[in-house]
Design a binder for these strands. Structure first.
Lengths: 115, 115
DNA sequence: TTGACAGGTGACTAAATGGTCACCTATAGT
DNA sequence: ACTATAGGTGACCATTTAGTCACCTGTCAA
């Protein structure tokens, strides 16, 4: 039998978790490559291990990061579900197309700007 | 000539703005119905006018809310672009389908649960 | 033109948050 | 066995943030 881990994400925990730049960098790192250890993540940041650990705990409590133990290591994975739920809260199906198009347009204009 | 207001949203301002529950309720209110005044929004919250105003300023600085003056009133509108950009930061095109499907599945299971 | 109304500012307090450290537990490898 | 390594906890301090208030500006309508 398959059990699904609590996708149930308390709103507040998710948004509070995303509010810190260090934690967003951690998500970026996990977006690049999943399954990293604390040591690994720590090395990319100018902060003590304790700081990083605290941040990872907050991300985990929010459900943005899920973990798996492997021996004495703890592997971290990005869970995109809460992110999508933020999106769905304020962007309905009809607006989605417009917004994406607008962002694409903006990117295009900025591209032209650079050349 | 048309000038586009700064869609350029400093990351940090957006995430910090979203971190507060009152501000998320304000976005919910504007998602329901756009073009509200401060007075209007204030009446839906248990907080002084000053508190609400401060929150609206933070949302506006983040680009999540755009405003237009009309006489002595200030009308507030929800801008979904920054929300979509959060989404795009951690959910790539390929993952998008999976994640949406997973959320739909979850909603379906919860629906069954209730019946 | 005067009074009511919508919005705005700067200062202040209480609470929450980020970061560090001393100290602890568990696993790996020799 | 024992030493190095990966991870974990609770207390602590500095900074940031939410909320309120006294006071101010601009617009509407009788």
């Amino acid at each position: 039998m398959v059990t699904y881990s609590p996708i149930v994400t308390d709103d507040d925990l998710v948004f509070k978790a995303l509010a810190d730049p260090t934690r967003r960098i951690l998500l970026d790192l996990l977006f690049q490559r999943d399954g990293r250890t604390l040591k690994d993540l720590e090395s990319g940041l100018e902060m003590t291990r304790f700081g990083v650990m605290k941040h990872l705990k907050i991300l985990e409590d929010a459900g943005l990061v899920v973990t798996r133990r492997s021996g004495r290591e703890k592997l971290h994975f990005l869970n995109p579900v809460p992110i999508r739920m933020i999106h769905d809260r304020w962007i309905d199906k009809y607006r989605e197309r417009e917004v994406s198009a607008l962002i694409a347009l903006k990117a295009e204009l900025e591209e032209k700007d650079r050349s």
